Computed example of a mutant assay.
Amino acid sequence: MLEQLVYSINTFLVHHPHLLRLMHLLFWVKYWILMGLIGLFVFLVYSEDHRRAEEKRQAAEAKSPGRFLA
């Protein structure tokens, strides 16, 4: 059943090459959107680590014996 569906889709696309080009374009658009999202999440992970390290450093400086916090 699934083979028949794939066969009919392939036959349709052979007779309509403009739709095949459109599918190719849409797959590339999807690829670049997913790569952008992955890049965004990687950036957020590394920027969060950097920000937390800065907060920890400031907290350690504030608790140093040379400073008094009221």
Rank of each mutant, 00 (worst) to 15 (best):
M1R: 12
L19D: 06
A59Q: 14
H18I: 11
L5G: 07
V42N: 01
G36M: 00
A70C: 02
I38G: 05
Y46H: 13
H50G: 07
G36N: 00
L69F: 04
Q58I: 07
D49Y: 05
Q58Y: 10
E55Y: 11
L13Q: 04
W28D: 04
Y31I: 03
F12S: 10
L5I: 15
D49N: 07
A59K: 07
A70S: 07
L44N: 04
I9S: 09
E48R: 11
F43Y: 15
M35Y: 05
V14W: 01
K56M: 09
Y46A: 01
L20H: 10
L5C: 07
E54M: 05
F12E: 10
H50V: 06
V42Q: 03
G66V: 06
G66A: 09
H18Y: 10
L25C: 08
S47E: 05
L40N: 01
F41Y: 08
Y31W: 08
Y7E: 13
F68Y: 12
L44P: 00
L44C: 08
V14Q: 14
A62F: 00
M35G: 04
W32R: 02
L69E: 10
A60H: 12
S47D: 05
M35P: 00
A53D: 09
L40F: 09
M35Q: 09
A60T: 08
H50K: 13
H18L: 11
E61D: 09
F43C: 09
K63G: 00
G39Q: 00
E54I: 11
H24D: 15
I38K: 06
F41V: 02
Y31F: 12
F27Y: 07
K30G: 09
L26I: 04
F41I: 05
E3Y: 15
W32Y: 13
Q4P: 02
W28T: 02
E55Q: 12
S8F: 08
L13I: 10
V6W: 14
K63A: 08
M1K: 12
Q4H: 12
G36D: 01
Y31G: 00
L13H: 02
E55P: 00
E54F: 01
V29S: 07
L20Q: 15
H50Q: 08
I33M: 02
N10F: 01
L22G: 05
F27V: 12
L22A: 11
Q4D: 11
V6Y: 15
L13M: 12
I9N: 11
L22E: 15
Q4F: 13
G66T: 06
G66L: 07
L20W: 08
P65W: 06
N10G: 13
F27A: 14
